[in-house]
Design a protein around this nucleic acid. Structure first.
Length: 427
RNA sequence: GGUCGGGUGGCCGAGUGGUUUAAGGCACCGGUCUUGAAAACCGGCGUACACGGAAGUGUACCGGGGGUUCGAAUCCCUCCCCGACCGCCA
C-alpha cells in the first residue's frame, strides 16, 4: 500500500503512475473519500471525548438523580458517536478498496509501457551454443532418460504434477544445495519455511486466497493455504514487529515448495515443467533500511546472474516495464534463461525475478524499524528474489546441456551432489 | 485429541467495573557527581491516526473479533496463540 498522506499530497503523480502501470484507479475519488472520512473522524473523536467526560463525572456525582441524568446524557452521546462511526467506516471501506488497488510507485529508470517495453540489460557470461544436431526439449529428454513421470503425476494429482526420478531427483537436491551453499557464504540465513500459511499472512504479502481467480490452493475447513512462494512466509515472519535498525539489513534464504493453481493460464505455453502446480524454490528475501534497498536489489540480481553463470546457462537480464511490475514492486529484474527446446528453435523463458517492494509490503504487514535514541518508528523496505526455481532451472539444464549423442552433461558445479558427470551415454 | 494454566508497553511484571493518567522494575536517552567510567541520585521514555505554523491537544490501542455498561485490561461469548501434563504418533 502507498502512504495515504503521500496520495493526498500528490494525487496527480499517483494517478499518472497508476496509468503507467496499466491499472485503473480513481485517485480523485479516493482523495475525496479520505477527506470526508477525516471530517467524520473529527466528529467521532469529539463525541467520544464528551462521552468520556460524562462517564468520569458519574463516579463523582453526589446524588442518585444526578447520576441517572448523566447516564442518559452519556447514552445519547455514545449513540450519536455510533451513528457517525458507522458512516465513517462505510467511507473508509470504500476508500480502502481503492487504496488496496493502487500499485507501488515506480523507479524513475523503469521503462514505461507494457510487457514489450521491458528492457534487455545484458546477457550472461555463457553464450548460446550452436546445436549441430536435432534439439530435443526437456520433455523428450526426460522421457529418453527416465527422469520425469508426468503421467504418474497426472494420475495421482492431475495435470501439472509430476514425479522426478533418477538423476532428476538428484538434480533437484543438487540445485538446492548449490544455491543454498552460495547464499550462506554470502551471509544469508537459511530457512526452511512452512509450506502452509494463514489467510492473513497471504493477504499481507499481497496474495488473495479463496477468490474466484486465485492462484492459491486453500485447505478446506481451515484458514490454511498452500504457499505460492517462501516470500509469503518470510515476509510474514516479521509481520507486526519492530526491528532494531542495527539489525538491518536482514537477509534470509527460504527453501520451500511452491503451489500455484495457475487459474486462467489455460492455453498458455505449458508443456512439461514450465508451468506446474508444485515446484521447489530457493528464495532470497531481505528487510532493509530505505536507503539500502536499491543496492540490495542490484545485489540480488547479481547473485542470480552468478548462480546461472556458474551452472553454465545462457540468459538475459530484463529491466521490467511499469505495465508488468504487478502491484508491490517498485522495480523488478527478471532473468530469462535460454531454453533451446522451447518454441521452434529455442526461446528465452523466465527463471528468476527480483523485486524491490520498498515500503509497499511492509506497510500492509506492519514491519517497522526503530533507530536507537530516535522517537517513533519507520517502515522497512522488503525485497524478494528467486535464487533458483528448481523446475524452470531443470528445463534450462536439460535442454542446454544435451549432447549430440543424446546424453546430458551435468553442470560441473552440481556434480558433487549428483554423483556423476553425465546422464545417459557412457557416463 | 483431552485437561489445566496463561497472553498487559522494547523486555519482565502488578492490576477482578470508576483518582489507572496501566504500579514497579529492566533496558534506553538526558543531566548531577567523577580525571574517566561504574554506582548513586534527578528527569525523560509506547504506537497509530487526526487537528494545529509550532508548542501541543484529542481519540484509539492490555492476543483478534463481538457483546454487557454512562464507563471494561477487569464481566460475558467466540476465535487464535503459548506453556504444562495426559493420550496417540513419524
Amino acid at each position: 500500500m502507498l502512504d495515504k498522506r503521500f496520495i493526498l499530497d500528490n494525487p496527480d503523480l499517483v494517478q499518472e503512475n497508476c496509468n503507467h502501470r496499466g491499472i485503473k484507479v480513481d485517485v480523485a475519488r479516493f482523495v475525496q473519500l479520505e477527506l470526508d472520512r477525516r471530517q467524520l473522524q473529527l466528529d467521532v473523536e469529539d463525541l467520544s471525548r464528551q462521552a468520556n467526560v460524562v462517564s468520569k463525572s458519574i463516579a463523582q456525582a453526589k446524588d442518585e438523580a444526578g447520576r441517572e441524568a448523566r447516564k442518559v446524557e452519556g447514552r445519547n452521546l455514545r449513540d450519536l458517536k455510533e451513528q457517525k462511526q458507522v458512516e465513517m467506516e462505510r467511507l473508509a471501506a470504500e476508500a480502502n478498496v481503492i487504496h488496496h488497488s493502487m500499485p507501488n510507485l515506480s523507479h524513475p529508470e523503469a521503462p514505461v509501457g507494457g510487457e514489450d517495453a521491458s528492457k534487455e540489460l545484458r546477457h550472461g557470461e555463457i553464450d548460446i551454443r550452436p546445436f549441430p544436431f536435432p534439439v530435443l526439449d526437456h520433455v523428450d529428454l526426460a522421457e529418453q532418460h527416465s527422469l520425469i513421470d508426468f503421467e504418474g503425476g497426472a494420475r495421482i494429482a492431475g495435470h501439472g504434477f509430476y514425479f522426478l526420478k533418477n538423476e532428476a531427483a538428484l538434480l533437484e537436491l543438487a540445485i538446492q544445495q548449490f544455491a543454498v551453499e552460495l547464499l550462506i557464504r554470502e551471509g544469508f540465513t537459511p530457512m526452511i519455511t512452512p509450506d502452509l500459511a494463514r489467510g492473513d499472512i497471504l493477504k499481507g504479502t499481497g496474495y488473495i486466497p479463496r477468490g474466484p481467480e486465485t492462484q492459491i490452493y486453500s485447505i478446506e475447513s481451515s484458514d490454511l493455504n498452500l504457499v505460492a512462494t517462501a516470500e509469503i512466509t518470510l515476509g510474514g515472519l516479521y509481520a507486526g514487529q519492530v526491528i532494531d535498525a542495527d539489525e538491518l539489513p536482514i537477509r534470509l534464504c527460504g527453501i520451500s515448495h511452491c503451489f500455484r493453481t495457475e487459474a486462467g493460464a489455460a492455453g498458455r505455453a505449458s508443456r512439461g515443467l514450465y508451468r506446474v502446480h508444485q515446484f521447489t524454490k530457493i528464495e532470497m528475501f531481505a528487510f532493509t533500511l530505505p536507503e539500502q534497498s536499491e543496492d540490495m536489489l542490484n545485489y540480488f540480481r547479481e547473485l542470480e546472474c552468478e548462480l546461472f553463470d556458474r551452472m553454465g546457462i545462457p540468459y538475459r537480464v530484463l529491466d521490467i516495464a511499469t505495465g508488468d511490475l504487478g502491484g508491490p514492486a517498485y522495480r523488478k529484474f527478471d532473468l530469462e534463461a535460454w531454453m533451446p527446446g522451447r518454441g521452434t528453435g529455442g526461446e528465452y523463458g523466465e527463471v528468476t525475478s527480483a523485486s524491490n517492494c520498498t515500503d509497499y509490503q511492509s506497510r500492509r504487514l506492519d514491519i517497522r524499524y526503530k533507530v536507537k535514541g530516535e522517537k517513533g518508528t519507520h517502515l522497512v523496505h522488503t525485497l524478494n528474489g528467486t535464487a533458483i526455481a528448481v523446475s524452470r532451472a531443470l528445463i534450462a539444464i536439460l535442454e542446454n546441456c544435451q549432447q549430440a549423442d543424446g546424453s546430458i552433461l551435468v553442470p560441473e558445479v552440481l556434480r558433487r551432489w549428483v554423483g556423476k558427470d553425465r546422464i545417459g551415454g557412457n557416463g
